[in-house]
Design a protein around this nucleic acid. Structure first.
Lengths: 255, 255
DNA sequence: CCGAACCGTTCTTCTCTACAGAACGGAAAT
DNA sequence: ATTTCCGTTCTGTAGAGAAGAACGGTTCGG
């Protein structure tokens, strides 16, 4: 009960708490466990689970509950409506095949970046993050590419709103330092990431500037530093990323 | 209010109604539209949207609301926990490349089949359904493969629970007819679909029998009849599907 | 083989939440 | 400039959802 009346629906929050808890848990959970963790009564948990089950969001095996793939359905539906996703998918598959490394599409959501499509190369590195997850923008190459493509005032907004966490020692946490980096990204049209998200993982990315101003996006390639290091120049990975971005833009504007 | 007390949470249902309505709508919707469609007051819609927004499930552009990719995140998390998905993904990419046609993994959920991974071939046909969607089991090849791998009594349960809808004139709607078909699927270890889901689209599938009894699964290949017709024999597509299933089973049991 | 502990479900009582509807205020349209 | 539309805020009230006890099935441990 804050002094700011917050017209927010408790029941919905409880249901979402349950759904998220089930999704995060590696294995199915029972009513008592959930009730304890959320600090509500068992009957409440039971009623919410019944509701979620009736709606197809939760499955029951014996007396354990687990999430269904219903939310994947909602997610796919939502993603399918994003024009840049439609255009980028195939192109990212090609990029992954050509570069031999994992290729990703990031989209801006609020003040964070969402990996919207991940094309894993056959022998490539698999990122820890999953499609749909929200990640800080300042710790990876596509995030920086997205940031650099924003107008200056929005960059400030985002940097203010985001807490500049540092997953590794290489992460830039100073706004000033970051903004300097972003200027050079804007000049070069490519962003790099050198172990700022995961130790030993590097990335190249570029913004996908599109007429669809609703969805600010970037694509990139990432992988272990020892695999990618020499190949930046030899095989011109940055060039491949740039030309892929170009193709996506062409596909987007031509339709 | 039915005579059966249904301990179900209205607020949660309203929130899910909103979320699903936004997901299904091709473009963002306003408060009034949503209130009209759901037949609730505007303030209720507003409160629910605020809640969903605070939780990151809904975005607001101007005064239109749209779903975020948050549910994709939940969905990916859930899917990542399914062992057969982990093993099948790469193999399905290979199958799609080798066969040149879209390859899919279906998993049984309640009494329906869920396309859990779709590997689209470069020039292949794109299915109308999306990952996570629930589809009837009797209208496609992987569905039939899943059905045939179930014990007889469960087949009856599923056929009773499902309404045997007929999207095309080729769909089998008679339980007896279907069960006869399932027997031959069990004998041959491959299931076929000949335009029973979409006119002119055919498929081959086989069950992935796994030690993970929680997830009954099948993989398959599908595409336009005129592309696949001769190639069944020439390139032995059914054989490719079978050997892919074998590899997946090996990968699953070896870990 | 029996008893105790556990857990999911059902049920009842009561409080407070979530709903409807009105009022407000800003933007867009005529 | 005036009207209309729509999102947001506010308020009273009915009824829904929370808590907790009680039930019944299953699974332990003795």
């Amino acid at each position: 009960m804050a002094d700011t009346p917050d017209y927010t629906i408790d029941a919905t929050e409880t249901s979402l708490d349950l759904l998220e808890m089930l999704a995060e848990s590696p294995d199915p959970l029972g009513v008592t466990t959930l009730a304890d963790r959320l600090d509500v009564s068992k009957s409440v948990v039971h009623n919410h689970l019944s509701t979620l089950r009736a709606r197809g969001y939760v499955l029951k095996r014996g007396n354990r509950y687990e999430p269904s793939l219903r939310s994947l359905s909602l997610g796919s539906q939502t993603r399918a409506k994003i024009p840049v996703y439609q255009s980028a998918r195939q192109q990212l598959d090609n990029l992954a095949a050509a570069s031999g490394e994992t290729s990703v599409l990031f989209v801006l959501e609020e003040t964070e970046g969402v990996p919207t499509y991940i094309a894993e190369a056959a022998e490539g590195w698999s990122p820890q993050y999953r499609e749909g997850e929200r990640l800080p923008l300042h710790i990876n190459a596509p995030g920086k590419a997205i940031l650099s493509s924003l107008p200056d005032d929005r960059i400030d907004d985002v940097l203010d709103a985001a807490d500049l966490v540092a997953p590794t020692s290489a992460t830039m946490t100073e706004p000033a330092e970051l903004k300097a980096a972003l200027r050079s990204v804007r000049d070069d049209t490519v962003a790099f990431c050198r172990g700022e998200q995961y130790e030993g993982i590097v990335g190249v990315a570029t913004a996908v500037s599109t007429s669809d101003t609703d969805h600010v996006a970037a694509i990139g390639v990432c992988g272990p530093v020892d695999r990618l290091n020499g190949r930046y120049l030899e095989e011109d990975i940055a060039g491949q990323v740039l030309s892929t971005a170009k193709s996506i833009q062409v596909a987007l504007t031509s339709q």
